[in-house]
Write a protein that binds this DNA or RNA. Structure first.
Lengths: 262, 262
DNA sequence: CGCAGTTTTGATTTCTGTCAACGTCTGTGG
DNA sequence: CCACAGACGTTGACAGAAATCAAAACTGCG
């Protein structure tokens, strides 16, 4: 699956069926700047499905929007994209694949997220973006996106903040992977996702959507699925969390925080 | 030592003695763009000591240059810098410090390197930069640096390439820390430093300056000094490398590469 | 010389990975 | 509605890598 060629994956995507068009092209008005601003929590912006409507305000930037079913690649790791992908709805993962077929998830993208600010600057490959749940993703041509950032007063500051925020997250991941225990890494992952969801859906409480498979958690924390399972079991047994039906409930936030702070 | 206040560290730095001025201020002509271009190997540029001379070509950008003795902090992790630091000579390390006092080195900066492109965009703290050997570092005000990038035709492309390159390195570090063995991580570190030195000093061969302590290697690879020592001993015993006197010699590059590719 | 920072080495423990088997869920097609 | 297949989750036994602990040797330096 990971070795599917780009052409194959695009072909697959074209065959998406159902009441939604597989591919949506054209000069839709879409607020990419709203997206960036949303990303950094700077303003309410236009999130998710709305991006495909004609109600956006900031600019008119041509883009291609498309639905991707769960587990489908959005950007292939051998692709050299000349566009900036923005996740408008659903969950996606940015990952690296090693020589030996091992995978490292670098970040999860929730609705409104750009998978990496680096896409704005340079064609950079080697990283894949993959749908976790069903995803609606818009792809903006890099040149168009850069121009839109330049033409909008809030563009550059928002992008700068996004870069800083991404660096912060990347730094924390380094520390997690090198110096923290399996239990701590998983606790931190859960809490960081909960925090991001809360800042997006105004008021997601202790119970939230959680479409990640244990394989995703393992790939993000640098552990094996078996070990992830054992630790989640332990956390459940200790009454810290409840999982099931693609949902997660934080039952004892204080205790989870305690583990995460180590 | 890590908890030294910023003021204390600046005071310490002021007392540097010897035939070199501790602090060099003023509107020296310095090619920060040359630095960026140098960073990405795009052009020969102006490196190291030359930056403090008046021979630079590209622009005149005010900056503060200063010598830092080995093991002295250059940017404190609690500092929120409004400048862009460029290492003009010597070796420095960018590191994060955890709650529990553990350290993760994110990158080594060699002469001509900016410790992180993120400094150009936003005041981002939490990361410290520390001298390994004696370092001469120039600090450019962020606004000045940004203006210089904008005003120079090669500025933005060079900065974009730098960002992409940095992302690539950061991604590789993630994979290293999560999925590769201790031996592989160390082999990769040695080879990557050798490659960078070679691309800088035209023609640094298999023998090069290597001022890192085992503690630095441990902090960069996420291992303990004890384990680093054991693996280096094993590599020496296997005839792969020779170390001593702050130098490293690669004796069997093919075998080292073999280990690094795993 | 003595001291502090490094490097080295061995014994032991802890964490996490590997292997293997089995149970459960989910979607698909008849 | 049922049967089925494949993906996913769970559990236990065991192995291996790296951490921890402890002590000694080495280095450079005032």
């Amino acid at each position: 699956m990971l070795d599917t060629t780009i052409n194959q994956s695009l072909k697959d995507n074209d065959t998406v069926s159902g009441d939604r068009a597989g591919v949506v092209e054209g000069n839709y008005r879409a607020s990419c700047l709203g997206c960036i601003a949303r990303e950094v929590g700077a303003c309410a912006g236009f999130v998710g499905e709305r991006l495909s409507s004609r109600q956006s305000a900031a600019g008119e930037v041509p883009s291609v929007g498309q639905y991707y079913p769960a587990r489908r690649p959005i950007v292939h790791q051998r692709e050299v994209p000349d566009y900036v992908p923005i996740i408008c709805s659903g969950w996606a993962a940015s990952a690296l694949v090693t020589h030996g077929g091992k995978r490292q998830i670098v970040s999860f993208s929730l609705s409104g997220d750009m998978s990496s600010a680096a896409y704005v600057f340079e064609s950079c490959s080697g990283r894949s973006v993959e749908a976790i749940s069903e995803v609606y993703c818009r792809k903006f041509k890099r040149k168009d996106f850069q121009a839109a950032v330049q033409n909008h007063a809030a563009g550059n500051p928002a992008l700068s903040k996004l870069i800083a925020k991404e660096r912060e997250a990347s730094d924390q991941l380094h520390v997690d992977l090198s110096r923290r225990s399996a239990e701590t890494r998983i606790a931190r992952l859960i809490l960081s996702i909960a925090a991001r969801l809360r800042s997006k859906n105004v008021g997601a409480g202790e119970d939230f959507e959680f479409p990640l498979r244990q394989q995703h958690i393992a790939d993000a924390t640098g552990l094996t699925t078996v070990h992830v399972c054992k630790i989640l079991s332990r956390m459940r047994a200790a009454g810290l969390i409840r999982t099931g039906g693609r949902h997660m409930t934080i039952l004892d936030r204080a205790a989870l925080q305690e583990i995460a702070d180590q």
